[in-house]
Write a protein that binds this DNA or RNA. Structure first.
Lengths: 198, 198
DNA sequence: TCCTTTACGTAGTGAGCACTACATACCTCG
DNA sequence: CGAGGTATGTAGTGCTCACTACGTAAAGGA
């Protein structure tokens, strides 16, 4: 029971890599087995069925995303909205983060069909991300922070979506406009320390 | 050459319906033929191959989306940003519009893989939509309108994404926050008439 | 009427899919 | 050493997929 678990874990790691590189849908058992260095036969020995594999790989990927975000924006830091938007956009629009965003969007389209487990997972991820952003915003009113976080999350998703279809210029314009608007919204309050466009 | 074209067109209409209802990916030739009232054999007689079918259905769906948007927000009307956001969100978040948004998101995830024709189509759709919104905004500066439009489009996409994963409450909060922010941003200028077009 | 083009049905093809039956190697413990 | 569970290879199963070979009916112009 030990050797099996170890191999299962190792396989899952490679499987997550493969899904990040090629997507959830196009990942057949055979293709996953190849990159994991085993056979489809063995994958179905380590996991109960393909759904188990998908579910497991997806949660591993979610953990990786959470880690990447945590590393980029540790939980201690507090930002006011325009700053947060700038920092998060920089992280999430980075080329090396693109595979994660692609899996996120694919997960969303699978969830839209209403099929489990995708709908459940996608909802949890969205909740997690909103809370995660809210925890990093300034302000005492928790519900106001949550509203602002929901706003930032949806704007970020839309931004990355534009990037994903090759409209980087439009995404740039949208981001600049958003930051500018948010800055003006905060009154003249501390409109100084923002590295990107002033 | 006439009968064939007529049948092709009729089939395409039903095919678009099927794709809106069930998605692009899960639409096999057989399933499409069933809802079109023919056989897969005949679909490949009307069209050159499945890619031709997908491409054709997708452009028909895009036309339908354009029509629906045009009907909801005719080209004569001009809005200032918070108004526009409110109106567009109401249209695009409506349950009857959901199938169209699902196809849009699926198109985006297909485009993310970099495969044609999806990447090209998705880019065109994004461009079209940004221009469409820009043409309906107030203001003389065309490039400022485009920037604002790109911002609104990305925010709208993110909003609908939250809806699609079942987070309607978060989407509501995000929308409310966005409108409030945008209103405050415009100064006190005409912060009164939000519902109707000016 | 005959003949060519167009339209359509039947019945496949080979490939890929998730998944399995079965035999055998291997490793561990008594 | 030998028995019994654990691990793995081989070779399938039945299914769906996009697509096709081939034959024939219908349509339409001469």
């Amino acid at each position: 029971m030990k050797r099996r678990d170890a191999r299962r874990k190792a396989a899952l790691d490679r499987i997550a890599d493969h899904m990040l590189a090629h997507g959830i849908g196009p990942s057949s058992l055979r293709a996953l087995a190849d990159t994991a260095g085993t056979s489809d036969r063995m994958l179905l020995y380590y996991f109960t069925d393909k759904d188990d594999i998908t579910r497991s790989a997806l949660s591993l990927i979610c953990l990786r995303i959470a880690d990447a975000l945590e590393a980029a924006v540790p939980s201690g830091s507090r930002y006011w909205a325009p700053e947060a938007m700038s920092v998060l956009a920089q992280v999430m629009r980075a080329p090396e983060f693109r595979p994660h965003m692609r899996v996120w969007f694919e997960l969303v389209t699978l969830a839209m069909r209403g099929e489990e487990p995708f709908l459940g997972i996608a909802g949890q991820v969205a909740d997690y991300f909103v809370d995660w952003v809210a925890a990093r915003l300034e302000g005492d009113d928790a519900s106001a922070r949550r509203a602002e976080a929901a706003y930032l999350v949806s704007a970020l998703d839309g931004l990355v979506l534009l990037d994903c279809v090759g409209r980087h210029e439009a995404a740039d314009m949208a981001l600049a406009h958003l930051i500018e608007t948010a800055q003006r919204d905060m009154g003249g309050l501390a409109a100084s320390n923002l590295n990107p466009p002033s």
